[in-house]
């Protein structure tokens, strides 16, 4: 009985920690994501995106996925992908990048809270995503 109570307390403490990260993070993102700076960011990242075989059209779904995650950003990702009519090659490359590197802020923060090394997680994921997507972009040449 005692162990049940102490584990319940531990579980609630952990949930509280996670919630204290998630709620401000999501709220901040909602407030910031409409700022003009972020809308213009497409110009800045374009050269970097070309390196992994993507064009400007993929910028909104790509960065939504990187910062928000695939499940939470699903609405935006699906809508933009269909409206822009992204070609199969770009969809695959974007999917590959996001598979390796998505929802990074939230994922990294919650693992740092329980004792993980944030820069190591972020570094390996970002490095691997750029490497793999860049490699595939060279293997699968644009038609």
């Amino acid at each position: 009985m005692e162990i049940l109570l102490s584990s319940l307390l531990g579980a609630l403490k952990l949930s509280a920690k996670l919630i204290l990260i998630i709620v401000p993070l999501v709220t901040l993102f909602e407030v910031l994501r409409h700022l003009p700076v972020f809308r213009r960011a497409g110009n800045v990242v374009e050269p970097m995106m070309r390196g992994v075989g993507l064009t400007r059209d993929a910028a909104i779904p790509l960065f939504t996925g990187i910062f928000l995650g695939i499940a939470y950003g699903a609405g935006i990702i699906i809508r933009v992908a269909q409206q822009k009519g992204l070609p199969a090659r770009e969809l695959f490359l974007m999917g590959l990048f996001l598979a390796t590197c998505h929802s990074v802020i939230e994922d990294v923060l919650i693992f740092v809270v329980i004792g993980g090394n944030g820069p190591a997680i972020l570094g390996v994921r970002l490095g691997l995503a750029v490497l793999l997507t860049g490699l595939m972009a060279r293997v699968w040449k644009p038609a």
Binding site: A11, L12, L14, S15, I22, V23, L25, V26, T27, L28
Partner: peptide, 17 residues
């Protein structure tokens, strides 16, 4: 943002606890 955060919190508690 707050309401999205709230529903995520509900999801967290339902699964984590």
């Amino acid at each position: 943002g707050l309401s999205a955060g709230f529903w995520t919190s509900v999801k967290i508690i339902k699964v984590s606890v």
